[in-house]
Measured scan of single mutants.
Amino acid sequence: MADYSSLTVVQLKDLLTKRNLSVGGLKNELVQRLIKDDEESKGESEVSP
């Protein structure tokens, strides 16, 4: 898992935009949104054959 907390808000928003996720909120919220997306993506890849 990436260390999103070391990134700037601009970098976080860029990552969120690329994933089609909301870019609104405080830095901590942006980090949590990326972590949640990582976990959901990981779960999907494990279920797929």
Rank of each mutant, 00 (worst) to 15 (best):
residue 31 V to T: 06
residue 45 S to D: 12
residue 47 V to M: 14
residue 37 D to A: 13
residue 38 D to L: 03
residue 2 A to P: 07
residue 7 L to S: 04
residue 23 V to N: 07
residue 33 R to Y: 00
residue 30 L to M: 10
residue 10 V to F: 08
residue 43 G to S: 14
residue 26 L to G: 15
residue 28 N to A: 13
residue 31 V to C: 08
residue 23 V to E: 08
residue 47 V to I: 13
residue 4 Y to M: 03
residue 15 L to D: 01
residue 15 L to T: 05
residue 49 P to G: 10
residue 11 Q to G: 06
residue 28 N to V: 08
residue 5 S to E: 13
residue 36 K to L: 09
residue 14 D to N: 15
residue 27 K to G: 03
residue 33 R to S: 03
residue 7 L to N: 03
residue 48 S to T: 13
residue 34 L to F: 01
residue 33 R to I: 01
residue 14 D to Y: 07
residue 45 S to H: 14
residue 6 S to D: 14
residue 47 V to E: 11
residue 3 D to W: 11
residue 33 R to N: 00
residue 46 E to C: 05
residue 11 Q to R: 05
residue 3 D to A: 06
residue 10 V to Y: 08
residue 3 D to E: 10
residue 15 L to M: 09
residue 7 L to R: 04
residue 18 K to P: 01
residue 22 S to Q: 08
residue 41 S to G: 13
residue 43 G to W: 07
residue 1 M to L: 09
residue 8 T to I: 00
residue 39 E to F: 10
residue 4 Y to R: 01
residue 25 G to T: 02
residue 10 V to M: 15
residue 7 L to M: 15
residue 1 M to T: 08
residue 48 S to P: 11
residue 43 G to A: 13
residue 29 E to Q: 07
residue 25 G to K: 01
residue 8 T to Y: 00
residue 17 T to Y: 08
residue 26 L to E: 15
residue 20 N to R: 11
residue 26 L to I: 07
residue 3 D to V: 08
residue 7 L to A: 04
residue 5 S to H: 12
residue 12 L to S: 02
residue 8 T to R: 04
residue 28 N to L: 08
residue 34 L to C: 04
residue 4 Y to K: 01
residue 4 Y to F: 05
residue 36 K to M: 12
residue 24 G to M: 12
residue 34 L to R: 02
residue 16 L to Q: 01
residue 4 Y to L: 02
residue 43 G to L: 12
residue 25 G to L: 00
residue 8 T to G: 05
residue 33 R to G: 03
residue 48 S to C: 09
residue 10 V to D: 08
residue 12 L to T: 01
residue 47 V to A: 11
residue 35 I to G: 04
residue 40 E to G: 15
residue 8 T to N: 11
residue 21 L to W: 00
residue 24 G to A: 15
residue 4 Y to D: 02
residue 31 V to K: 06
residue 39 E to A: 13
residue 27 K to W: 03
residue 30 L to F: 03
residue 34 L to V: 04
residue 17 T to Q: 11
residue 44 E to F: 10
residue 32 Q to I: 00
residue 19 R to D: 00
residue 5 S to Q: 10
residue 1 M to E: 02
residue 14 D to M: 12
residue 23 V to T: 15
residue 31 V to F: 02
residue 43 G to P: 10
residue 9 V to Y: 08
residue 35 I to C: 10
residue 3 D to I: 06
residue 13 K to T: 11
residue 18 K to Y: 04
residue 17 T to A: 14
residue 21 L to C: 06
residue 40 E to Q: 07
residue 31 V to A: 07
residue 43 G to I: 05
residue 5 S to W: 10
residue 22 S to A: 12
residue 41 S to A: 11
residue 16 L to V: 04
residue 32 Q to M: 08
residue 10 V to I: 11
residue 18 K to V: 07
residue 6 S to M: 09
residue 41 S to N: 14
residue 19 R to I: 00
residue 7 L to Y: 07
residue 39 E to P: 03
residue 3 D to G: 11
residue 36 K to I: 07
residue 39 E to G: 12
residue 40 E to S: 14
residue 6 S to A: 04
residue 21 L to S: 02
residue 23 V to D: 12
residue 48 S to N: 10
residue 29 E to R: 02
residue 36 K to A: 13
residue 23 V to L: 12
residue 36 K to D: 10
residue 18 K to D: 11
residue 6 S to E: 08
residue 25 G to D: 01
residue 25 G to E: 02
residue 43 G to V: 13
residue 21 L to Y: 02
residue 21 L to R: 03
residue 20 N to P: 01
residue 9 V to R: 07
